[in-house]
């Protein structure tokens, strides 16, 4: 598959960097200064409602709402996460150790991998096609691939959110992430007046993924185990086109090659 998609909006959320603008500032030299106790708080949810949701869902929705204005109502969205609601699952697994066993209904219905997707569809009143995908460390590449397939099959824009959050102990040690992170992209098969960059995507034979450190991001972002970190080089290049492609891992013997070109200079 060779495909061209345009980026009409970018979102980002992580401790100390609550917006894509904040990330851009950091990648251009501003220091990374995360709060010790950061609670992601989406603007599209009432605070009480938000606090019933996991950190993973909240950080995903924070990134999603930054790109919503760049997308049509009821357009498809793809959510990609490796561990999804691992934190909520941990609470259920702890409850299974007690006697008698009681699992809170709200906790159970929000333990599904697509909790972020479902809660976002409710917050955004979006009745379109939405999905949630996972592929361990290759989750960011698969997120882009699925979003591209969705955009090309029906020739329409699509929202993509890639997110993961640290799980609490004792599950944390089994897949440690340093920070919660989410990145979102408004993607369209057609160039529009607001397009920031064009992406040429190609599925190629397996090659090593582009190291997140080339983005220049602080090691706490670029080297924290969270699969979202693999998107940092792409996030940098959207605003500062440079030569050379970015590679994301795909499962199997393939990689996703993304070449970025600017739209602002024609």
């Amino acid at each position: 598959m060779k495909a061209r998609l345009h980026i009409d909006g970018v979102g980002f959320a992580a401790p100390g960097l609550p917006t894509a603008e904040a990330l851009r500032g950091h990648l251009e030299g501003a220091p990374f200064a995360p709060e010790a106790e950061w609670k992601p708080m989406p603007a599209s949810l009432a605070r009480r409602q938000a606090l019933r949701l996991s950190e993973a869902t909240r950080v995903a929705i924070m990134a999603a709402e930054q790109i919503a204005a760049a997308l049509p109502a009821d357009c498809p969205w793809v959510f990609a996460s490796s561990t999804g609601e691992g934190g909520t699952l941990n609470e259920i697994l702890l409850a299974l150790r007690s006697d008698p066993i009681m699992i809170q209904p709200l906790r159970f219905q929000n333990a599904v991998h697509n909790a972020a997707q479902g809660n976002w569809s409710i917050a955004a009143a979006n009745k379109g096609a939405m999905t949630s995908v996972a592929a361990y460390d290759a989750t960011p590449g698969i997120g882009f691939l699925k979003a591209a397939m969705q955009a090309l099959t029906d020739d329409r824009p699509v929202g993509l959110v890639v997110f993961d959050a640290p799980m609490p102990p004792p599950l944390h040690d089994k897949r440690p992430f340093g920070l919660a992170m989410a990145a979102a992209f408004a993607l369209s098969p057609r160039r529009g007046p607001e397009s920031l960059a064009a992406l040429d995507l190609a599925v190629v034979a397996d090659e090593e993924a582009t190291a997140p450190s080339v983005s220049g991001a602080d090691p706490r972002l670029a080297d924290n185990g969270n699969p979202v970190r693999m998107l940092l080089p792409l996030l940098r290049r959207i605003h500062r086109p440079e030569d050379g492609a970015i590679l994301l891992d795909l499962p199997g013997s393939h990689a996703l090659r993304i070449t970025v070109s600017g739209c602002r200079d024609g």
Binding site: G84, V112, H113, N114, Q117, M130, T131, S132, V133, A134, A135, A138, I142, L145, K146, V203, L250, P251, G252, S253, H254
Partner: peptide, 16 residues
């Protein structure tokens, strides 16, 4: 994928 020797693109859908 590993058991069957599938080396093409693969992923998981999890929407309950």
């Amino acid at each position: 994928a590993e058991h069957l020797g599938i080396a093409g693109v693969g992923y998981t859908v999890s929407t309950a």
